[in-house]
């Protein structure tokens, strides 16, 4: 059971949870969005690690190399990256509107203003 082989997945786990912690614990809305994008980029790392083949090269045929890493996870992650950036862009637009409406982007201050 070579530790080195699984190291990538442990980094994935740590990254996932750092992002998740930022989302859960940090009241600042922008810090939450940063945590969210970290959370998603951890998943990208996990997918790409699936696709890696020992001794393989990037799946571009024709350069003489025979062993290729799997292209499928890479395609999925191309899509996921753009999904992540779209969500971040929308989140930031919301943060701007919240800043204009409430004058603050700290979650607890917003809740105070909302409490009836």
């Amino acid at each position: 059971m070579d530790i080195l082989g699984l190291y990538h997945y442990w980094v994935f786990a740590v990254l996932l949870m750092t992002g998740f912690y930022a989302i859960v614990a940090k009241p600042n809305l922008i810090k939450k969005l940063i945590g969210l994008s970290l959370f998603q980029s951890a998943v990208f790392l996990c997918y790409i690690t699936f696709g890696k083949l020992a001794g393989g090269t990037a799946p571009i045929v024709g350069k003489g190399a025979e062993l290729f890493s799997s292209p499928l996870p890479q395609v999925l992650i191309l899509t996921a990256i753009v999904v992540s950036i779209s969500t971040t862009a929308l989140g930031l637009a919301l943060v701007l509107r919240i800043k204009e409406a409430y004058g603050s982007i700290e979650e607890d201050e917003i809740q105070e203003q909302d409490a009836p």
Partner: peptide, 26 residues
Amino acid sequence: LDAADVALTEAAVGAGISTVLFLGAL
């Protein structure tokens, strides 16, 4: 990890655009 396309995208979109967006919001 042999994911050249994804590396290029992550650099262009992840490092480039998202930093610009966050700075714009900040």
